[in-house]
């Protein structure tokens, strides 16, 4: 499989954490230790839904140096394409599943004099492992965590208990308490790096505020897991394998290609890593680029497409696969 070697795991605990959020603990079925990982890393969880394989990326939130198990937290998304619904409704303790090796597209800049972490909602998960690592290695960090309501805020008390109210600050939307981003950004010592993970609007807002505060882009880091958006169905022709593949309303090109039994490369499945970049042989219509990997020029050229999140509208699309 092109995404890398998978690890067979057993679900050993499912814990409700907050409204619509559950934590899953995976231990290796073969009894061996899990690989160590770095804070910010994610794994791809493969879900076998009656023969239909779904693959979603989830940030690892267990301690990076604890190789007895991996833990993830899953938010049951309202208009889920199936992944989070499957995790919430079908996965039970004792189930056998598969996860990929860890991949990190949200690595802290270890040169940072200070790490300023900003999380919104379920975007807290990559930071939980990151803070564990910062704390163990004596790095200076500060977490600002925005939640919608108290019952939706996962791990608030745990984090405050662990790192203290000086380093972890909670802001509750329902109580009209917002992260004072602009003020925070004006008072950071030189050499600070900022990391933000949360809803797309929040990420955009924080990054824009950062640039407006004169921060160089090198010090601004974000992780957005884009999910493939539903859209009109379409067909693609694969020139190398000579196959035609139909992409359904709720399916991504990558999923449709995999379902047809064709091996396509991938890593993050979220439009960020560039691994599934594919050459377009012919495009009679419009490519709907949803990734953050290709440059604007590359997107405009119509010669490349990321299979994991992008779509197509028009008459014919031929891909070099």
């Amino acid at each position: 499989m092109s995404g890398g070697t998978e690890i067979p795991v057993r679900v050993t605990r499912v814990t409700p954490v907050a409204h619509r959020i559950k934590r899953f603990r995976f231990e290796r079925s073969d009894g061996r230790p899990m690989p160590y990982f770095s804070g910010g890393a994610h794994v791809i969880v493969s879900m076998n839904d009656n023969g239909h394989v779904r693959r979603n990326a989830y940030s690892l939130m267990s301690a990076p140096y604890d190789c007895s198990a991996y833990e993830i937290s899953v938010l049951h998304v309202e208009d889920s394409r199936g992944g989070s619904s499957f995790m919430h409704e079908k996965v039970r303790e004792g189930d056998e599943m598969r996860v990929s090796h860890p991949v990190n597209l949200f690595q802290p800049d270890w040169r940072g004099r200070k790490h300023l972490l900003i999380a919104g909602g379920i975007g807290i998960t990559p930071f939980i492992a990151m803070m564990e690592q910062f704390s163990r290695e004596g790095a200076c960090f500060e977490m600002h965590y925005a939640i919608r309501t108290r019952d939706r805020g996962a791990y608030c008390e745990d984090l405050i208990a662990r790192y203290g109210p000086q380093r972890v600050k909670i802001y509750c939307d329902a109580e009209n308490d917002r992260i004072p981003v602009a003020r925070l950004l004006d008072s950071q010592p030189l050499g600070t790096h900022l990391y933000v993970c949360g809803p797309a609007g929040m990420i955009d807002g924080v990054l824009t505020t950062g640039l407006e505060a004169g921060w160089p882009e090198q010090n601004l880091h974000s992780e957005r897991f884009l999910s493939s958006q539903p859209g009109k169905p379409f067909s693609i022709e694969l020139t190398r394998s000579g196959r035609t593949v139909h992409v359904g309303h709720h399916e991504s090109m990558l999923e449709a290609i995999e379902a047809a039994g064709i091996d396509a490369p991938f890593l993050c499945r979220g439009g960020a890593c560039g691994q599934c970049e594919t050459m377009v042989a012919l495009c009679d219509g419009k490519l709907l680029h949803n990734d953050v990997y290709l440059t604007e020029e590359e997107k405009a050229s119509g010669r490349k497409v990321m299979l994991c999140v992008s779509r197509f509208e028009g008459k014919a699309l031929h891909l070099d696969l």
Binding site: G4, T5, P35, F37, H101, P102, V103, L267, C273, G274, Q275
Partner: peptide, 11 residues
């Protein structure tokens, strides 16, 4: 470089 940036753990 492009290849190495996506080099995977265990591979």
């Amino acid at each position: 470089l492009k290849f190495l940036l996506n080099l995977q753990q265990g591979k």
